[in-house]
Design a protein around this nucleic acid. Structure first.
Lengths: 347, 347
DNA sequence: ATCTGCCAGGAAAGCGCTTACCTCGGTGCT
DNA sequence: AGCACCGAGGTAAGCGCTTTCCTGGCAGAT
């Protein structure tokens, strides 16, 4: 069934133009080596007539250079990664690089498999974006695979990972958590519920740590009954908010560890007829585009996502020289309508 | 500066294990050909010790099969494509296929370049998602490139394109437009403003055509002063809504040709203190996740985006047999809080 | 004991390119 | 006129794999 069509090769083009493959190749890649004009025309005409499309695999095999770059994210369709990816693509496109995007769906195994895959394809670099895992075994294996990849000449840049093998952009997650917490405490909230992401993600623990620090500074404590871990998405936000409200009716503020969850929390509160921010304040994290379109507009901690992507790709593409760099991406507090002073009865 | 590291090859593995490359290859790819157990162990041990990662390019060159599949979308970070891409990836992953995602950013030139690129990489299939252009020249060139690709053995599947070379999934854009219009007219609206996407996109004209048909059926007309073309995103919605309101103060309903624009319209109305849906009804298109989180929740026309992606990938991956298939994806009206009966003073 | 048959394993021929190296004709010099 | 030199174009050697085809050793049959 699978009859192979007569694929056009460079040899066909050369034959058709009456030159050697060497000359044809030189013309097609316009190499520095000078070639007579009439030959060039003949070859180009042949390329066009035969509709020759050079085999990228053969080409890549023959020359030693690497050009494509791989990107591994949790899920491009998640706005957080969509923003980062946009930045990555932008810079890659400027450099004429092809980007191969892989979704790990937060599965460490799949992540490992993709590193191998990108290594096998001899990509020039791998950009790994997204939280790391609190899973020593998986982390060690990943570290190891990345090291092998680097030893084989690949570059690695990571975004928001602690285990930075290579260059890294680290968003100020702890600092951001602190900013959110500090803002809430300053508004007079004392009972704060935290809608956290998955326990095993470092992003969760980092942001939470910032919140705790703010609490400490304001001589408060965030006990475990004020923290609910859930999926890092809208639905996770809905269920976590519901549980938090159930467990602690006195809560006057909800801090979600990302905007998706915050939006879910808003939905949950709306459904229960709890006014935001009058009765309960809500603050998110990331400042995703949707934040300004929900009602009330979401207060949050802004992370320059697209910029992070751009910087990560720039690091990955810059020459191999120099020691690995670690850059931080600043978190900034953005207050909108979803936060307000704690209501009087909240003490 | 660029000293090449000693890259491990299959030959190294074979030597290290004391076998031929043929045997090593057979073991690594566990080919059907039987191999003695002790050799297998030795080779696998060597692979592990040397951290051998086979060169995918060489492999691809040596065997004739194609495995990766390319996807060209306007922009993955746009929720519309993010949803579709999610579906595409899902099915591809089930088949163990690598997906290469390319963003054309709605630039026909870039689109062409990517087709060449994916062709060069000998991908098994190309999935082209996103509206086509009303640009005969560009369309013809694209058609041509796709034909060359198919002649060379590639498969092509398109989503929402008229010029279907190969398999196609076509969302019911016209029908959806009709549903939106019909719903609005039934609610008693007579002056409807249309927030349209870019003029040169077929998606825009198709959806608009549906709206026009509904108008005709209700013995109304949508004149050009009731239509504003803008960018297919939130900002486009904001500016278009503003202009529409300015031009036709009597408008009681706004139909946006996608949800992003509808969300922008909502923002614009909110800012001007115009109540939705009391004074003005708003309806979107696509039913993106954000639709339920804005206030009021957005009435819209649902398109099964993820499913569309899944079906498109399924078409692209199924064997080459059979004539090109065209499947339609059903549009469905989803009424939420942003639409209501026309206010009395609206006649 | 000799022959046939079988099968595990190896030699080698590509896959479609790039490029180092060689060839050969023409030029400028003595 | 004879030489060295130069440079456009071709020859061929890989790049790292897969796979066809061949080899040689062994078991079973006669």
């Amino acid at each position: 069934m699978r009859y192979s069509r007569p694929v056009v090769t460079l040899a066909d083009v050369a034959r058709h133009a009456g030159v050697s493959t060497a000359t044809a190749s030189r013309i097609i890649n316009n190499s520095p080596k000078p070639v007579a004009e009439h030959l060039r025309e003949r070859v180009l005409a042949a390329v066009n007539e035969l509709q020759f499309v050079p085999n990228a695999n053969a080409r890549q095999l023959a020359r030693a250079d690497r050009s494509a770059v791989g990107v591994i994210v949790h899920d491009v369709s998640d706005p957080y990664f969509a923003e980062i990816t946009r930045g990555l693509q932008r810079v890659a496109a400027e450099h004429g690089r092809l980007v191969i995007i892989c979704n790990s769906y937060r599965d460490p195994e799949r992540e490992l498999a993709y590193v191998d895959l990108l290594h096998a394809h001899r990509t020039a670099a791998i950009v790994l974006a997204g939280s790391g895992y609190h899973d020593t075994a998986a982390t060690a294996r990943l570290q190891h695979k990345l090291r092998v990849y680097r030893d084989a000449g690949g570059r690695v840049a990571v975004v928001g990972r602690h285990e930075h093998t290579g260059d890294a952009i680290v968003p100020e997650n702890e600092k951001g958590g602190y900013l959110a917490g500090d803002a809430l405490y300053r508004l007079g909230h004392t009972a704060i519920g935290v809608i956290a992401g998955p326990r095993h993600l470092t992003t969760t623990t980092d942001r939470l740590a910032g919140l705790q620090r703010a609490a400490r500074e304001h001589r408060r404590r965030i006990t475990s009954r004020h923290v609910v871990y859930a999926g890092f998405d809208r639905d996770g936000g809905v269920t976590a908010a519901a549980e938090l409200l159930e467990r602690n009716p006195a809560i006057t503020a909800l801090a979600a560890l990302n905007d998706s969850m915050a939006v879910g929390a808003l939905a949950c509160l709306r459904e229960r007829g709890i006014d935001v921010p009058e009765r309960v304040s809500v603050i998110g994290f990331d400042d995703m585009p949707v934040a300004v379109d929900v009602t009330p507009a979401l207060s949050t901690v802004r992370l320059p996502l697209e910029e992070i992507g751009m910087r990560a790709m720039a690091l990955a593409l810059r020459g191999g020289q120099g020691a690995p760099t670690t850059e931080t991406a600043a978190a900034r507090l953005v207050l909108r309508g979803s936060t307000a002073a704690a209501p009087p009865q909240g003490r």
